[in-house]
Design a protein around this nucleic acid. Structure first.
Length: 632
RNA sequence: GCCUCGGUGGCUCAGCCUGGCAGAGCGAGAGAUUUGUAAUCUCUAGGUCGAGGGUUCAAAUCCCUCCCGGGGCUCCA
């Protein structure tokens, strides 16, 4: 229920024209006037229909409070649909209004009610004293323990606002240290960089196609939209969960190798916590908010909150620095505007490895930045995304650049290709330097994967200190690092890459370590089944057997559609020789499968080589295809 | 929030313009077939055509209202 209360000298209305939902009224009600009254403009909402009695009771009480304050007992109920964008059905609205009228009369108010569903002209004179204009929202939410609050005015963080104000100076920096204006740069041979620059600077983003990965994520039974949730919250089928889990484990392990300690922190935080509130205003993202009891909470959009609060309470010596912590956030939540959400590229709930490094001074921060920059290149490459697949953006303040010019040029030398530079005169955000690796997809859209930032203000905000060798308390600099970027986004990038490969005549596939099925054994006929099962038992990796009663051709086609890297066909020949005939996907061309006769041992060696150095998980689906349900 | 497209069997969609018995493919179930590298054949089951209202002898189809979803814009760590 939405109500707008106006203490008025008088209110006067006249019906003009009925709408299709108009209530039938006597002529006497077609005009009305009330002097010295509280006019209550009122909209009955959809949510009131769940408990009309509650809405009426609360509204009546609210009206009573205000009439007491303004000392009147005359009320004009005036239906006013425009107060809400989520109206109740006309039928229940009329019912609610009538009951409210009755209730107020019982409470000895003098009540008039303007008819529902008519176009009316009205004149009102508002008294203009401080209490003469009030609005109230009445919802049952207070009694439930978890109600997502629909903010009337969306909270927009200061960072989002300042981002709009920030002036960016764009450049291209080449490996030999030339800093050029984008217009002066020759993009020949740098198609992806050109797309990226267009995307960033010229905001050229219109696309009229569904991104290819959306179809692929469904067809490969990885992930899908979940209409039962909020948009941007995906469901992951067993195969998708497997791929995601492998990526998660891999990235966590790489962070651990660099000395990061894995921690776990809550996903929701008190919106009115003084420190957190200030940080919210420095982070350009929108939050989900949640009400629990009387507390307003927000869902984290990164792991910073929990880790910084933990850092605050820690005793940290200079000997502990650089101090690294990592958390895999499942999930980070960002309430992106609904239209921004696309497949696995941009989500409202996503999984992000988030590592923070406390450094004793700027020199150490810069050194760590450099190390993590290299780590990110390595992580993406191991995931299956090479330097050719993404473009580098480095962003910093003018001051930082003036003091660290050689360092930045060196970053460009490492990737050995021109990068996009964004320069700000002042520091608008919490960092002085950041880079991201941006994946350029089949529709020329750019999305950030890995990123590292040097944060110069959150140590102070959160009161994070360390004791230096001379016994004095100091503030560390903090690096934020996501070695891979969001896990879902990595999957998106791999799928988009596979799609672009297939457009180029390269057979699409996932890296072997991520393929849900690594080897599929297909018996030529039923009588080879026993041998097939025996072979499957001896093979390494995620093996399955196509034991369905289908033709050989069908089974081979299905294996190809699932992008199975190794398809081992076994028939009379193989039973006789004791080996397998393997279709090797990575060596095949469209319509030209490459079949290699090999022993089980040889196949095992190939697979072991493909997956060496990567995490392994068993396939959650049954080994026999005939026992697997379909998900899409 | 705005623009746009859509909602028809489990899935993908046709039918709608021009109103007249609700269709196909995939998938599922049954049967036949025992196959050597991109879909074997036959049969069967399965639908309040998103919801509500209106027009009409008759509505999946036309009109109105609403709901839900996709894509785009805005936005973007």
């Amino acid at each position: 229920m939405q109500i707008l209360l106006i203490h008025s000298d008088y209110i006067e209305y006249e019906t003009k024209k009925s709408t299709p939902v108009a209530e039938k009224i006597e002529d006497s009600l077609k005009k009305g006037r009330m002097d010295e009254a509280l006019t209550v403009f009122i909209a009955v909402e959809k949510s009131d229909e769940d408990s009309i009695e509650y809405a009426i009771k609360q509204t009546a009480e609210e009206i009573k409070k205000v009439t007491d304050q303004v000392k009147t007992n005359r009320v004009m109920l005036y239906p006013y649909a425009h107060l809400s964008s989520s109206l109740a059905s006309p039928k229940s609205a009329v019912e609610t209004l009538k009951k409210l009228e009755e209730r107020l009369k019982e409470a000895s108010f003098e009540v008039k009610r303007a008819p529902f569903g008519w176009y009316k002209s009205f004149t009102i004179k508002c008294k203009g004293h401080p209490l003469s204009e009030l609005s109230r929202t009445i919802r049952q939410g207070e009694q439930k323990c978890l109600t997502v609050v629909r903010e009337k005015e969306e909270m927009v963080s200061e960072a989002l606002k300042s981002e709009a104000k920030a002036t960016s100076y764009w450049h291209i920096l080449t490996p030999d240290g030339q800093l050029l204006k984008p217009d002066d740069f020759d993009f020949t041979g740098y198609d992806n960089l050109k797309k990226f620059v267009n995307y960033e600077i010229h905001k050229s983003r219109a696309v009229d196609k569904i991104p290819p990965h959306v179809e692929l994520m469904r067809r490969l039974e990885l992930a899908d939209y979940e209409p039962g949730s909020d948009s941007g919250n995906m469901r992951f089928y067993p195969k998708g969960r497997l791929v995601k889990s492998l990526l998660e484990n891999y990235v966590l392990d790489e962070a651990a190798k660099k000395g990061a300690m894995e921690v776990e922190t809550p996903i929701m935080y008190d919106m009115n916590h003084p420190t957190l509130k200030k940080y919210l205003d420095r982070f350009p993202a929108r939050q989900y908010s949640i009400e629990a009891d009387k507390k307003m909470l927000f869902l984290r959009f990164a792991a910073c909150f929990g880790q910084f609060l933990m850092n605050h309470d820690m005793t940290i010596s200079y000997r502990n620095l650089p101090l690294r912590m990592v958390e895999l956030t499942r999930y980070s939540f960002r309430k992106e505007q609904s239209g921004e959400l696309v497949g696995l590229r941009r989500l409202r709930a996503f999984t992000m490895p988030d590592m923070h490094t406390l450094c004793k001074d700027m020199d150490e921060a810069v050194a760590q930045f450099n190390e993590q920059y290299n780590m990110c290149i390595n992580v993406l490459s191991m995931i299956g995304l090479s330097l050719d697949d993404y473009e580098v953006a480095i962003r910093f303040t003018r001051d930082f650049y003036n003091e660290n010019r050689d360092f930045i040029v060196n970053l460009v030398k490492i990737v050995n290709k021109p990068v996009l530079i964004e320069l700000w005169d002042q520091r608008f955000f919490y960092f002085v330097l950041k880079f991201e690796f941006n994946y350029i997809d089949a529709l020329s859209k750019a999305s950030a994967l890995s990123t590292v930032q040097i944060d110069v203000e959150n140590a102070q905000r959160y009161g994070i200190k360390y004791i230096d060798s001379d016994g004095s308390e100091k503030m560390p600099f903090i690096l934020h690092c996501s070695p891979s970027g969001a896990i879902e986004r990595c999957i998106y990038a791999l799928l988009e890459k596979a799609y672009m490969n297939s457009e180029k005549g390269i057979v699409p596939m996932l890296p072997v370590w991520l393929s849900p099925t690594q080897v599929r054994v297909i018996p030529v006929t039923e009588k080879h089944m026993e041998y097939a099962q025996k072979v499957a038992g001896k093979l390494n990796g995620r093996v399955d057997v196509d034991d369905r009663e289908e033709t050989l051709g069908k089974k081979i086609r299905d294996a190809a559609k699932e992008w199975v890297p190794y398809v081992a066909v076994v028939g009379d020949e193989e039973v006789k020789s004791g080996g397998v005939t393997v279709t090797v996907r990575s060596e095949s061309h469209p319509n030209k499968p490459v079949n290699v006769k090999m022993t089980v041992l040889e196949l095992n060696e190939r697979i072991s080589k493909d997956i060496a150095g990567y995490p392994f998980k068993r396939n959650p689906l049954s080994m026999n295809l005939s026992a697997r349900p379909r998900f899409v």
